[in-house]
Design a binder for these strands. Structure first.
Length: 934
RNA sequence: GGGCGCAUAGCUCAGCUGGUUAGAGUGCUGCCCUCACAUGGCAGAGGUCGAAGGUUCAAGUCCUUCUGCGCCCACCA
C-alpha cells in the first residue's frame, strides 16, 4: 500500500491522498440526505460563513466538530444532513467590493446602485465559492447538493415574507431613535454590532454661565465662587463631559431633583457657551449626583440618555452632524470639521474663554463598529425596528424548560440574561448589498398626512395587530402597482436593506425552501419535496457555534423558529472555545497573528489539523504551529501500524474470522480494551466531549494497540487468529477514528484486504461493543505482564545492559496465580528478551540474582552470575521497603479511623483492607530478601 | 456596576457526578537508526493541584473569602 517511493517508505504523506479523497467526496452523492422514513433524521445546519470569507481557524474548529457529529450519526444509521451554505454578509461584502472598485478609482456612488450590485454579484460568482472549496478540503461532509446562499431567490422570499408578516402583526415599526451609527460605513447598526471597548478618554469640566436665577429675575454680572465646592459658582454651573463637541447640540442641562446643591437652579436659564443658545436647567432622576459635578449637559440628538430626557422634557433635538460625522450647519463656525477635530477646536475656544476648568483622565467604554472598528456615533435617525419582547417570550421558555440545551451549560445563563433584558432590534441598514426592505412610500399620501400624528407603536409597546398603516407607507410582499389609499403610481421603495442577521435568523428552515411559494422555480413537485424535507429534518438536532454568536444568531434563530415554525430550531447548542494565538489574543486578520488553516493542511494535512484542534477543544485554544505536529505524528503512527499489519497478514484475514475459543490473554485483553474504547468514544462524542473522545482513541491506538499488542503479536503473526484480531482491531479503530480523521482512515480502509472500492467509510457501520469480548480477568493478567516487562527493562537500564542482551530469569508465582501467570510467560519472555526462563516450585531467592517484585505472589529473579552489585541492591531494597512501609502506615491510619470504616461505602473500605494486606505481604517479602543478601 | 471563566509538571493543557501512588502532549536527561514508524522505541528527572479558611470518614474535585489573569454584558455623561 505504500504509494511513495521506497526512500520515503514509512512516512505518511497526506498531501495527495487527502486531495484525492476531497475531490472524490465532493463528486459523489455520499453525503446527500433525503427523507427516509426507515431512518432517524439527524440534522445540522452550518453557521454560514460570509461569502467574502476565507477559512480561518475558527471555521476549521467549528466545522470539524460538526463534521465529527454528522459523520458519527451517519455511521450510526441516521439519515444525517449537514446543510451547507454562505451568508451574503451585507456590510462586510459591500466593503470588500468597495475596496475592489476603489482600485479602479471608483466609488459606489459613481457607479450607482444597480451597477454596484451587479459588481457584487460578479464578485460572488468569482470568489464566493472559495470558502466552500476550502470546507471540502477540510473534509466537511456536507450535503453539497443543498448549498444555500442567503440572497438566493427563494431565501429572499422568506426574508420578505417574514418582514411583512411581522409588520402586519405590529412587531415591526419605523421611528426616529438614537441608534448606533458607523460614520465610515454610513449605516445604522444594531446594539450587538457595536461592541463597547474601553478607551482612555478624558472628562472635561466646562462652565456654563447662568443667565438668570429663577425668582430673582436679575441678571448676574459678577463671577463669584462659593466656598465649599470647587465647582459651585453663583453665576454658572459646571458640567462634566467626555464629548465636549456635542455641546453644540445641547438643549438643556440636567441635575438630579434631589441634589440640594442645584435645587434652587432648576428652571433657570443658561447661556450655552460658544453659540450662545439659551437653555434651561431641568431636573431628572436619571442624573447621578455623585458623578462629575452632578450637572449633565443634555444633547438629545447625540446620546441615548439625553434622548430620553429630551423626550420627557420636551426638549429640542438638534442634530449637529452629517452622516460622516462631520459637523453640519447647526454647529455654527465649527461646521465642516470632523467630530474629533471639532473637539479640539472647541476645547481650545473654551480654554481661551476660561470656561474649561479641569481635565481628568477617564477610562470609559465606547461603541465600535464590528466591521470596520470605527467609533460609533449615537445618532438620531429614522430606522426600522423589530419589537423583541413578544418574540423573546417563547424563546425564553424553550430554554428555561430545557427543550433547548446549551453545552457547556453555563451559556444558558448568558442567553437567559440577554433575552430577559432584550431591546428592540434596529434592522434597517443604509447600504446597498442586502435584502431591500419591502416598504414603499406614496409621496402624495405622506404629504397629505404631514402634521397628523403618526400611527406607530413605540419601542417596547405591547404587541398589537396593526389596524392601520401610517399614511403613505405600504409594506408588501410584491411591489404594489399603485397606492392602495390614493391610487397614485408614483411609489418609491425604501432605499435601505435589512440587517444580514435578519436573514440568518431564518437559516434552519428557510434553507429548506420555506415558505414554499408557488412561484418557486422548483415547481409544484419541488415544493412538495421541500415541504416533506422540512417536516422530516426540522427541528434540527445540534447547532455548533462560537460564544460571540449567541446573541447575533443563536438567540434570534430560536425566536424565529418559535415564531414562524411554532417549533424550536434545534435541541442542542454546542458552544466551543475561541481560537487564540499564543499570547491569548483572538486570531484576526488585522492583528496578523492568525495561523492559516490551509497552510497547516498543506504542511501537516487536514487530518492533523482536525486532530490537533479537537484535542485542544475543551476550552479556548491557544494555538501554535507546533501543536499540529502531534496530529501529524499520530496520522503517521496510524499509517505505519496499518502498513505493518497489511504487510504481514494474508489477504484472507478480514477481521471477521476470530476464533473466540483460541484467544490468548493478550488477545482477550486488546479485544476488551477495544470494547471499552468503543463505549467511551461513542459516549463522549454523543455528549459533545470531543476532546475526550479523541484522546481516548489516541491512547488506545498508540499505547494499547501499537506499543503493546502489536509487539506482543509479532511472534505469532503467522497465525490466522492473530491476523484476524489485528485486522479486526485495526478496522474498528479506523471506524472510530473516521469522523475525526476522515482522510487517512478512508485511505487505509480502501486498501484493507477485501475492501469494497465503491463503499466509503462514511457509510460504514459505527462499531458496537461485543459483549463476548468483555473480559475483566485479562486486564488483571496483563498488568502482571506490563509490570514484569517494565521491571526487566528498568533493570536492564540500571545495569547498562544492551537492549538486546539476553537475560536469564527465574519466576515464582503463588498457587492462586500460577496458572494465570504461566499463560502470560511467553509474552514476558518475548518482550523482556529472556533467553532462559525457569519456573520455580518454591519461592527461594536464587544465588547471584536480583529480585523483581511484580505484584503480590509474583516474583521474578534476574540471574546475573556474579555481576550483582550487592551494596547497590541493598540500597535499592531499603528504599523500596521504606516506601512500602510508608504506604502501610497511611493505610493503617485510614483504617483505624472509625469515621472512615463506619461511613465510607463498604467496597471502598474493603478495597483499602485488601491493599493493606498486600502491602504487608510485600513488605515481609522484601525484608526477607533484604536479609538474605547480607 | 453586574455576570462568567481560568489558575494542576519548564511550556500547552486533560482530570465526568468527591474515593488507588494526580495524567497526556511537548520540552529536558540517558540509552537505542531492533527488519511498521527516529513524525519512532525504552527508561528517567520534574507537581505542597494560586492563597487562606470551611464542609466531609475522605477535597485537585463541593462551599466561602482573597490574589492574579482573561472574557462578556451595562445609558455614570
Amino acid at each position: 500500500m505504500s504509494s511513495q517511493g521506497p526512500e520515503l517508505d514509512g512516512q505518511y504523506n497526506p498531501g495527495q491522498t487527502e486531495q484525492r479523497w476531497a475531490d472524490l467526496w465532493s463528486q459523489t452523492p455520499l453525503f446527500h440526505a433525503s427523507v427516509n422514513k426507515d431512518k432517524e433524521p439527524f440534522t445540522v445546519v452550518i453557521p454560514p460563513p460570509n461569502v467574502t470569507g476565507i477559512l480561518h481557524m475558527g471555521h476549521a474548529l467549528n466545522d470539524t466538530l460538526q463534521d465529527i457529529l454528522v459523520r458519527m450519526k451517519r455511521m450510526q444509521g441516521c439519515e444525517a444532513l449537514w446543510m451547507p451554505g454562505t451568508d451574503h454578509a451585507g456590510i462586510a461584502t459591500q466593503n470588500v467590493v468597495e475596496r475592489q472598485i476603489a482600485k479602479e478609482g471608483l466609488t459606489r456612488d459613481q457607479l450607482g446602485r444597480e451597477k454596484f450590485i451587479e459588481r457584487v454579484w460578479q464578485w460572488k460568482k468569482d470568489y464566493g465559492s472559495t470558502i466552500i472549496r476550502q470546507l471540502k478540503r477540510l473534509g466537511a461532509s456536507c450535503d453539497w447538493q443543498r448549498e444555500r446562499f442567503t440572497m438566493d431567490e427563494g431565501y429572499s422570499r422568506a426574508v420578505t415574507d417574514v418582514f411583512v408578516s411581522l409588520y402586519e402583526k405590529g412587531l415591526i415599526y419605523q421611528g426616529d431613535y438614537i441608534i448606533n451609527w458607523c460614520p465610515r460605513c454610513q449605516t445604522a447598526l444594531s446594539d450587538e454590532e457595536a461592541p463597547h471597548h474601553d478607551l482612555e478618554g478624558k472628562l472635561y469640566y466646562i462652565k456654563y454661565p447662568l443667565k438668570q436665577i429663577p425668582g430673582k429675575g436679575r441678571r448676574i454680572s459678577k463671577t463669584k465662587k462659593t466656598k465649599k465646592d470647587g465647582f459651585l459658582f453663583e453665576d454658572a454651573v459646571v458640567v462634566a463631559t467626555t464629548r465636549p463637541e456635542t455641546m453644540l447640540g445641547d438643549t438643556a442641562v440636567a441635575v438630579n431633583p434631589k441634589d440640594s446643591r442645584y435645587k434652587h437652579l432648576v428652571g433657570s436659564t443658561l447661556v450655552l457657551p460658544l453659540i450662545d443658545r439659551e437653555i434651561r436647567i431641568i431636573a431628572d432622576p436619571l442624573v447621578d449626583s455623585a458623578f462629575g459635578t452632578g450637572c449633565v449637559k443634555v444633547t438629545p440628538a447625540h446620546d441615548p440618555n439625553d434622548y430620553r430626557m429630551g423626550q420627557s422634557h420636551g426638549l429640542e433635538f438638534i442634530n449637529i452632524m452629517r452622516p460622516d460625522a462631520v459637523l453640519n450647519d447647526h454647529a455654527g463656525e465649527y461646521a465642516g470639521m470632523d467630530r474629533f477635530e471639532a473637539r479640539e477646536a472647541i476645547l481650545e475656544d473654551l480654554r481661551e474663554r476660561k470656561l474649561l476648568l479641569k481635565v481628568d483622565a477617564h477610562a470609559h467604554a465606547v461603541g465600535h463598529c464590528y466591521r470596520c472598528h470605527t467609533i460609533i456615533e449615537p445618532y438620531l435617525s429614522k430606522q426600522w425596528f423589530v419589537s423583541m419582547k413578544p418574540l423573546a417570550k417563547p424563546a425564553l421558555e424553550a430554554v428555561k424548560k430545557g427543550r433547548i440545551k446549551f453545552t457547556p451549560r453555563r451559556w444558558t445563563k448568558v442567553y437567559l440574561n440577554w433575552m430577559e433584558g432584550i431591546k428592540d432590534w434596529c434592522i434597517s441598514r443604509q447600504i446597498w448589498w442586502g435584502h431591500r426592505l419591502p416598504v414603499y412610500y406614496c409621496r402624495h399620501c405622506q404629504e397629505q398626512a404631514n402634521g397628523l400624528p403618526e400611527d406607530r407603536p413605540s419601542p417596547g409597546r405591547k404587541q398589537k395587530i396593526r389596524e392601520k398603516a401610517p399614511h403613505g407607507v405600504i409594506v408588501s410582499r410584491t411591489r404594489p402597482q399603485r397606492c392602495p389609499e390614493c391610487g397614485a403610481t408614483d411609489l418609491k421603495q425604501d432605499p435601505d436593506v435589512l440587517d444580514t442577521w435578519f436573514s440568518s435568523w431564518l437559516w434552519p428552515f428557510a434553507t429548506f425552501g420555506w415558505p414554499f411559494s408557488q412561484e418557486s422555480a422548483a415547481g409544484q413537485e419541488g415544493v412538495d419535496e421541500q415541504k416533506r424535507d422540512l417536516a422530516y429534518f426540522y427541528p434540527t438536532n445540534v447547532l455548533v457555534t462560537a460564544p460571540e454568536i449567541i446573541f447575533f444568531w443563536v438567540a434570534r434563530m430560536i425566536m424565529a423558529g418559535c415564531e414562524f415554525m411554532k417549533e424550536i430550531p434545534f435541541r442542542d447548542v454546542v458552544i466551543h472555545g475561541t481560537v487564540r494565538d499564543e499570547q491569548g489574543r483572538k486570531m484576526s486578520k488585522s492583528l496578523g497573528n492568525s495561523i492559516d488553516p490551509l497552510e497547516v493542511i498543506e504542511t501537516y494535512g487536514a487530518d492533523a489539523l482536525r486532530f490537533s484542534l479537537v484535542s485542544a477543544s475543551a476550552s479556548d485554544i491557544f494555538l501554535s504551529k507546533e501543536k499540529f505536529e502531534q496530529g501529524r505524528n499520530f496520522a503517521n503512527k496510524i499509517w505505519n501500524a496499518a502498513r505493518f499489519i497489511l504487510m504481514n497478514v494474508s489477504s484472507e484475514a478480514g477481521g471477521e474470522g476470530i476464533d473466540a475459543r483460541r484467544l490468548n490473554v493478550a488477545d482477550a485483553w486488546i479485544l476488551a480494551e477495544l470494547n471499552g474504547t468503543v463505549r467511551k468514544v461513542t459516549r463522549a462524542t454523543g455528549a459533545f466531549r470531543f476532546h475526550e473522545a479523541i484522546q481516548e482513541l489516541y491512547a488506545f491506538f498508540w499505547h494499547s494497540f501499537c506499543d503493546w499488542y502489536l509487539e506482543i503479536a509479532k511472534p505469532s503473526i503467522a497465525e490466522k487468529n492473530t491476523q484476524e484480531i489485528l485486522v479486526y482491531v485495526l478496522k474498528n479503530s479506523l471506524l472510530l477514528l473516521h469522523p475525526f480523521m476522515p482522510f487517512i482512515t478512508e485511505e487505509i480502509s480502501s486498501k484493507l484486504p477485501g475492501a469494497d472500492p465503491g463503499r466509503s467509510m462514511a457509510v460504514s457501520v459505527w462499531p458496537k461493543p461485543v459483549k463476548a469480548y468483555d473480559d475483566k480477568q485479562a486486564a488483571g493478567q496483563m498488568r502482571a505482564v506490563f509490570q514484569s516487562v517494565f521491571l526487566l527493562r528498568e533493570r536492564r537500564h540500571e545495569l547498562k545492559l544492551s537492549a538486546s542482551a539476553k537475560l536469564n530469569v527465574k519466576v515464582w508465582a503463588g498457587e492462586k496465580k500460577r496458572r494465570s501467570f504461566e499463560q502470560v510467560l511467553p509474552v514476558i519472555r518475548h518482550l523482556g528478551q529472556i533467553e532462559n526462563l525457569q519456573i520455580m516450585e518454591e519461592d527461594i531467592v536464587p544465588a547471584n540474582s536480583l529480585s523483581l517484585f511484580v505484584e503480590k505472589d509474583i516474583h521474578l529473579y534476574l540471574l546475573l552470575e556474579g555481576l550483582v552489585d550487592i551494596a547497590g541492591e541493598i540500597r535499592r531494597l531499603d528504599q523500596e521497603i521504606l516506601e512500602v512501609r510508608k504506604q502501610i502506615k497511611g493505610k493503617e491510619a485510614l483504617l483505624s479511623n472509625k469515621g472512615f470504616v463506619a461511613k465510607a461505602p463498604a467496597p471502598v473500605v474493603e478495597g483499602e483492607r485488601k491493599k493493606l494486606k498486600e502491602l504487608k505481604i510485600s513488605s515481609e517479602r522484601l525484608t526477607e530478601i533484604r536479609r538474605a543478601l547480607q
